[in-house]
Amino acid sequence: MQPPGFSADWYRAVTEFAHSTPSWVHPVAEIGTDAGLLLFAALFVAGWWRARSGQAPAMGLALAAPVAVVAAYLVSEVSKTFIEEERPCRAVAGAMNIAACPAPGDWSFPSNHSTIAAASAAAIVVAWRAMAPLVLPLAALMAFSRVFVGVHYPHDVVAGFLVGVVVAPLVVLLVARLVAPLVGRLREVSFGALLLGVPAAVPGPARRPVHLPPAPGPGPEPGPAPADVTMPDVMGGVHSAPPRR
């Protein structure tokens, strides 16, 4: 596969800029392009630990996140074998790469690093949304670093990023849905509870106290009920009145 001309031009511009930066930036960029993957691995462990006190669906998402990254990586790696794009550090004349150029046969399109970084960020966001402001910029920086050190074209990292953000969330949601019932059953045994934790008790709704009326105490005896007044009584009273003089 031949790279687009504009992507080769952008590659030259970025790598020339990289070489114009201070010398201490070069090893930092070369180490950082791989060290970011270790940070994502640490976040996966933190997400698992956080989910130990959550319900089964939360733990299912935490366990599915690394699986989703592996799935996205496989899609990227298989694509490389069919597309077979040469690395720019060999294909571009006068390439000024900071990192060592990968061996022949290690194809360029799409970027596996970008795929893994984007898939990790997307999977973490699905399972732990509050981490989005951290992981999404980190994934974008890692993708850019692959061009900065000179081992990928810009279109390689864009394609890898898209593979990661599309494949990972779909796999996370699918795997988590399958794993959540198993998490609930494993938590019922000692080893499963040790590995997956026990969810925190969910407090029920507070009940309002019921105030009963006081029991009737001793009181005066009720008197006889007044006799009902009937119409004949009224009429009789009228007739019995003395006549007026």
Rank of each mutant, 00 (worst) to 15 (best):
P4N: 09
G5P: 11
S7N: 08
A8V: 06
R12T: 15
A13D: 13
A13N: 08
A13F: 12
A13Y: 10
T15P: 06
A18C: 04
S23V: 13
W24T: 05
V25M: 14
P27L: 07
V28W: 14
V28E: 12
A29S: 15
G32C: 10
T33Q: 13
D34Y: 11
D34I: 04
A35T: 00
G36V: 09
F40W: 03
A46H: 10
G47L: 08
A51G: 09
R52T: 13
A58S: 13
A62T: 03
A62W: 03
A64S: 15
P66A: 06
A68I: 10
V70P: 12
Y73V: 00
L74S: 08
E77L: 08
S79I: 14
I83V: 15
E85C: 10
R87A: 03
R87G: 05
P88E: 04
R90D: 13
A91P: 06
A91M: 04
G94W: 06
M96P: 07
A103D: 10
P104F: 04
P104D: 12
G105N: 06
G105M: 04
F109C: 08
F109W: 12
S111H: 02
S111A: 08
T115L: 06
A118K: 01
A118R: 01
A121R: 00
I124P: 02
I124T: 09
V126F: 11
V126W: 04
W128C: 03
R129M: 09
R129H: 14
A139H: 01
A140H: 05
A140D: 06
M142Y: 07
A143M: 09
A143H: 01
F148M: 05
G150W: 01
H152V: 09
P154E: 01
V158R: 00
V158E: 06
G160L: 03
G160Y: 03
L162E: 02
V163I: 15
P169Q: 09
L170N: 01
V171R: 00
V171M: 02
L173S: 07
R177D: 12
L182C: 09
L182D: 02
G184V: 02
G184F: 02
G184P: 11
L186T: 01
R187V: 01
E188N: 11
E188G: 15
E188L: 14
S190M: 11
F191C: 06
G192E: 03
A193F: 09
V198R: 15
A200F: 10
P203W: 10
G204W: 02
P205G: 13
P205V: 10
R207I: 13
P209H: 06
P209G: 08
P209S: 08
V210T: 14
H211R: 10
L212D: 10
L212Y: 06
P213M: 11
P216F: 13
T230K: 05
D233I: 00
D233K: 06
G236V: 00
G237K: 04
G237C: 08
G237M: 07
H239C: 07
S240A: 15
S240G: 15
P242C: 11
P243G: 12
